[in-house]
Design a protein around this nucleic acid. Structure first.
Length: 150
DNA sequence: GCCAACGTTGGC
DNA sequence: GCCAACGTTGGC
């Protein structure tokens, strides 16, 4: 099983929102590197749910992949903010996955705290200017994060 | 293929 | 709201 980290603006979808929904589609990824990571996800993989662009940026909980990557329907929907005029049903370059809620942390693991962890210094997340919204997490990094969440 | 201009991300 | 960093676009 592989581990990942995915960013979401809580106004769009928060860990609490995912908890309420139980499961939902993770769509709207419009960056090729991030999309490639989406496509590399397998059923059962787990991910850190990161809150970005909000008062308290950080890892807010955990989720799990329940459906592997498939064409992202929001790319074809003219009413979606993620609409891509260059995408078509025959040729849709974007992917979505389905995720389910696993755990909401008692406290958000703030970005400042994450940056203090030597075990996490390789993560793109903690690098200045990093905009990658989907990234792999190593087993060692995953353990370090879970240790912080206790 | 280079690179300037532009739009977006995301922390602060 | 500001601004640094980044990815993409498009002229040449």
């Amino acid at each position: 099983m592989a581990y990942w980290l995915m960013k979401s603006e809580p106004d769009e979808l928060s860990i609490e929102g995912l908890s309420r929904l139980g499961r939902t589609r993770w769509d709207g990824v419009r960056n090729y590197q991030a999309r490639n990571f989406l496509r590399a996800m397998s059923l059962g993989d787990e991910f850190c749910f990161y809150h970005s662009s909000c008062p308290q940026p950080g890892i807010a909980g955990l989720g799990r992949i329940v459906v592997a990557a498939y064409p992202d329907p929001t790319a074809l929907d003219p009413h979606s903010p993620y609409f891509d005029a260059k995408a078509s049903a025959e040729k849709n370059p974007w992917s979505a996955v389905e995720v389910e809620h696993v755990r909401t942390f008692a406290q958000v693991l703030g970005l400042g705290l994450l940056k203090q962890q030597a075990a996490l210094e390789e993560m793109p997340l903690v690098h200045k200017g990093s905009r990658l919204s989907v990234m792999p997490v190593t087993a060692a990094q995953w353990q370090a994060i879970c240790a912080l969440a206790r």
